[in-house]
Design a protein around this nucleic acid. Structure first.
Lengths: 230, 230
DNA sequence: AGTCGTTGTCACACAGGCGTCATAAGCGGC
DNA sequence: GCCGCTTATGACGCCTGTGTGACAACGACT
């Protein structure tokens, strides 16, 4: 588990940006800010934030367009997003949520409430940062204790296998390509062979056995965690 | 995969409860309502809802206490919860979110926005319920999970058959020529025989059987997905 | 220095998907 | 019914993608 959560704030109203920075720093976040939509997209790749707070009206690419692009890119389509808007328009809020934002807060807002909403969202989307347990199909992963059980049996995993399993548990039944897994699981995004993923998958499978095969191979696509795998 | 999402509404203001029932039914939810906190806890065990909408002030055990108990019980600690409140108090909202609610909406609220928030929440907590799916004539294709079902039965397809079916599902009842299918389905548009399409169509037919023939042959034109195929 | 566990890579085995063909069956027009 | 053309079917071999075991490099720890 990382000690600190990274937040990217995209907001062109400086006083508000400062206010957010102050409150979220106090809540244990490392905060980066930008006022520009295009810059935001670059920064997301660079600093890989755990959470994004995105104003609706910003310089460059608009907030909603930034949101859409983030959701369209495979490497960022699970990034938690809270949108901010000055307008109280119901249609905007619905459009924002349907575009893929996870929450939508109107200005003026309470900074404390925003922090609380951020926590609530991270509880769901990045349990490893705030919550302590993931489970699926008889597998339990206790993040706080850094321990894995299958049907009550203790399972011993190496660090990489652990990260891989944790990722699968966060998105059960969803198929990930080898490239996606490389990007997501291997932090130092060096030149690691695609096939290396196969080997790690196998090691994870072996570690999780005996028991029903729970990692599904999707030929020419990738792998997924799936109870009905065989 | 269940066809319908189950929602439990805990709300003692009948007009509001009815309003919610109406809008969420329209959005594809099976809605159960109760006005009582204690009854809610029993109902949760019984109907195992996928989502809970919970009023702050209700009869019996209070909303926030219901929320706390839900989070304490192992069987329900991941149940998505949206809280409603008549009071606009910031402290309440923060308390609610910290107690484990996932979202917090003040009355009066927009029913449409609430539905949008429910979807956003389910995207995180139960992706398979709101996953992007293509369906036609009893066939369901879940894109994220890369899985196909026919009348609930799992169907196993090779990559090419999968792409072919996916394409047909995007344009049901529309006829495609062999050449069109070759161009669309075969990524490396090399010299592939037109007749090859026939064979893939057959393989897809076999994979989808038993069941009514659903791929229609249009003599000297091509093929289409059509419920009234025979 | 030595040991252990972990990790990335490789070579090889293997299964399964894929495209092609030959032949049978089907359809429509006469 | 007969003929010509189109489609269905089953078989076959190639080839790509995946599973598997071994191995060497590396770092942590003793």
């Amino acid at each position: 588990m990382r000690a600190t959560k990274r937040l990217l704030v995209v907001e062109d109203d400086r006083p508000i940006a400062d206010l957010l920075k102050h409150h979220f720093s106090g809540a244990g976040f490392t905060v980066t800010t930008t006022s520009n939509g295009d810059e935001a997209l670059i920064l997301i790749d660079e600093i890989k934030p755990d959470l994004l707070i995105l104003d609706w009206m910003i310089e460059g690419t608009s907030g909603i367009e930034v949101c859409r692009r983030i959701r369209r890119s495979r490497s960022t389509d699970t990034l938690p997003i809270i949108m901010l808007t000055a307008r109280g328009e119901e249609d905007d809020r619905i459009r924002g949520l349907e575009t893929g934002a996870d929450d939508f807060v109107s200005k003026p807002f309470s900074p404390k409430e925003l922090v609380a909403r951020a926590h609530a969202l991270l509880r769901r989307s990045a349990p490893s940062l705030v919550a302590e347990k993931l489970s699926y199909g008889g597998i339990e992963l206790d993040i706080a204790a850094h321990r894995v059980r299958r049907d009550g049996r203790a399972i011993s995993l190496g660090p990489t296998e652990y990260r891989l399993l944790q990722h699968f548990l966060r998105f059960p039944e969803r198929v990930f390509s080898r490239q996606q897994l490389l990007d997501l699981i291997w932090p130092h995004n060096e030149e690691v062979e695609l096939r290396t993923v196969d080997v790690l998958i196998r090691r994870l499978r072996v570690a999780l056995s005996p028991g029903e095969e729970i990692i599904r191979t999707v030929r020419s696509e990738g792998y997924s965690l799936d109870e009905t795998a065989h």
